[in-house]
Amino acid sequence: MTAPPDDCLARNEWICGDYLSSRREILLDAVAQHLRITLLAVLVAVLLAVPLAVLARRWGWAAGPVLAVTTVLYTIPSLAMFSLLLPVYGLSSALVVAGLVLYSLTLLVRNVLAGLRAVPEETRQAARGMGYGPVRLLLTVELPLALPSSMAGLRIATVSAVSLATVGAIVGFGGLGNLIYAGMNTYFKAQVLTASVLCVVIAVAADLLLLGVQWLITPWTRAARR
């Protein structure tokens, strides 16, 4: 009988280089799933949130109900949210995406709306005076000016989505959360720590990326500060 291997995997250490090299495929798959789920959720949320915020801005009476509904959605704990969607989506990645969309909506609608409301009335009148129609005014004046506030919301929504996606492990589609869940059941320290750290790394990287994008697409804020 051969002696059991005495490496960091056998000793179940928290930090283990062998884990990284021997489970590379599993880790990459989990990261890919994590990115796919978060990216899709944030994209859908943006596509829903911008029209909702524009509508709430146009018709003042709609703002109250839209904000109330999204706030209620935000209050529901993630585990319950995913569970409530179970009858609709079954055990699928669509369930996790849908849950994350509902959370991101709150943050995005609130921030886009705040950005639109902060556009000075004088600016709007000037654009109208130059012959801008309502659509052109919205697309070329109001939405760009709402960008700083919207991007702040987008950053918070993205970071939250990356972190909340781990709870998707309850239905087997949690990206890195799946590894954390499996690692918990098998008491696999290296796997839990590696997956957790990767999760935080993804969140921070996404935040920095969006910060860079914001810097690129809002050059006027830089000019004003100088």
Binding site: V159, S163, I180, S196, C199
Partner: peptide, 18 residues
């Protein structure tokens, strides 16, 4: 607060459990 948002609750729970 921003740091708190980036760290997954579930990961912290499992890390503490181990």
């Amino acid at each position: 607060s921003n740091v708190g948002r980036a760290v997954p609750t579930f990961a912290v729970l499992v890390l503490l459990l181990l």
